[in-house]
Amino acid sequence: MTVTFPQRPLPWLLLLPQLLVTAIFFLWPAGQAVKQAFYQEDAFGLSSEFVGLENFSHLLHDPLYYASIGTTLFFSFAVAFVGIALALLLAVMADRVMRGQIIYKTLLIWPYAVAPALAGVLWWVMFDPSTGPIAVWLKSMGINWNHFLNGNQAMTLVVIAATWKQISYNFLFFLAGLQAIPRSLIEAAAIDGASPFKRFWTVVFPLLSPTTFFLLVVNLVYAFFDTFGIIDATTSGGPGQSTKILVYKVYDDGFIGLDLGSSSAQSVILMMIVGVMTVIQFRYIERKVQY
């Protein structure tokens, strides 16, 4: 127990700024979203009518909503999986080399600082069907690349852009995890005659599993909520619905489609998803302390 100060009004004064901002810009709008989710507004926003759970039941019977859930899951797991695999490969290699480690690290971590929207635009240009160097190269290989028409290709593009930005983050955490593994364990395995490959799968990788799990959760949260900019600056959810992830759909239905009831119902569902993910993240951190 820490020693404390006895003053009474002071702590409230200290808390006041944060509580005010939280109440005005977080709790109040969140409350509005919850309330709005039970109302149906007419197209001009003149009147609204209480409709109970209708917005939700509408959503749950909407094939487009399920399509968006599917898109989000595919997108998130693709980003998490590819990002983690590539970052692990790079981190293991960087952990091995003696010379130039700092230079490699520096040259690999900077994409973290690039805004998702900018990452999207950069890769958009690389893959532009008529002028992008990669698209032209693919064409010479016999693959007809056009993400304006082909939904799978548009999805590939946003996955690449989102992964590119996230690899640096995963890399840093894997490198730290690898450097925390006691050398003696690896030496013992080496003396027993295990090859580097075998050592990795039987000693290193299992010891890294807390880091991997942690990164999986963080990457999923990232792909769910922080990739809005990538989608918006490039595909805008298209072609068709092929890259319309849930976060984008909330914005699209609310601001572009002006269907506030449905958008708010989606917000409420998303808030629940964030809640669950936050709890998972915190539960896991408690376990890490024991480990």
Binding site: T22, F25, P29, Q32, D226, V247, L270, G275
Partner: peptide, 19 residues
Amino acid sequence: IFMTLMLPVEVRIVPTYKV
């Protein structure tokens, strides 16, 4: 304060804009 963790802007975009 903890609850703000669960409410990224992207999720409650329309009502925050209104406020």
